[in-house]
């Protein structure tokens, strides 16, 4: 489903403090996988995830999403790819502060032009799975960290993307909420068949992933 061919990423290229953040990455992720990119802090986990999510430019190489090379698209096409094919869960939740929980969950669907009734149904369905039904009319600022992260997950999966990219989603959560989140992600992976790719150095996340992709100093181990 996703194929990375000889992907390199340099920061400060050509400058004295040049960093080779991703070193000739060759990686394939199959449809329906539940994988985690693991490694020490600063090894390039987030950089790799951002590259796959076409959030960041790579210096060289290719990234394929199914039959399409996506690393070298225009910014507009990349935005379109992120909107229609990918879901994102960030460490800092990153919800839209002026929208309610229900509006945040349905936001990506709305951007994709789903009918209002379908959005409403899907929001309620996800809120029920993620146990945030009673919070649907609440603003994100009034939720706990765990609740906010569940809303972020719901937003990411709402429009049934092909892949969910989650960057350290448990980093700001306590262990109880981390376990809950992982269980929910697993359930979504099994129930919805969504490919999920984490970056994490949380032991619990690594233990629960079906595949662990080890990264060290920008290179796959």
């Amino acid at each position: 489903m996703i194929k990375l061919k000889h992907v390199n990423k340099y920061f400060y290229q050509g400058e004295p403090r040049e960093v080779h953040a991703l070193k000739s990455i060759e990686l394939e992720i199959e449809r329906g996988e539940f994988s985690v990119i693991n490694g020490p802090s600063g090894c390039g986990k987030t950089t790799l995830l951002n590259a796959i999510g076409v959030l960041d430019e790579i210096t060289s190489g290719e990234i394929w999403l199914e039959e399409r090379e996506i690393a070298h698209l225009s910014p507009r096409e990349k935005t379109e790819i992120r909107l229609t094919q990918m879901g994102f869960v960030f460490q800092a939740y990153n919800l839209v502060p002026v929208l309610t929980v229900a509006e945040n969950i349905g936001f990506v669907m709305r951007l994709q032009g789903y009918p209002a009734e379908e959005i409403r149904q899907r929001v309620h369905e996800l809120a029920s799975i993620l146990q945030i039904e009673e919070k649907l009319d609440t603003l994100p600022s009034l939720l706990s960290g765990g609740q906010q992260q569940r809303v972020a997950v719901a937003r990411a999966v709402a429009s049934k993307p092909k892949i969910i990219l989650a960057d350290e989603p448990t980093a700001n959560l306590d262990s109880k909420n981390s376990i809950k989140l992982m269980e929910m992600m697993k359930r979504l992976n099994e129930k919805e068949g969504i490919t999920i790719l984490f970056s994490s150095h949380d032991a619990y996340v690594v233990e629960n992933a079906r595949r662990v992709i080890m990264l060290d100093d920008g290179a796959l181990v």
Binding site: L83, F90, R155
Partner: peptide, 16 residues
């Protein structure tokens, strides 16, 4: 700025 960054990252087009 952060909010706009989030929006862009989840597919909210610049024209929006």
């Amino acid at each position: 700025i952060r909010e706009f960054g989030i929006l862009l990252s989840i597919g909210y087009a610049y024209r929006y």
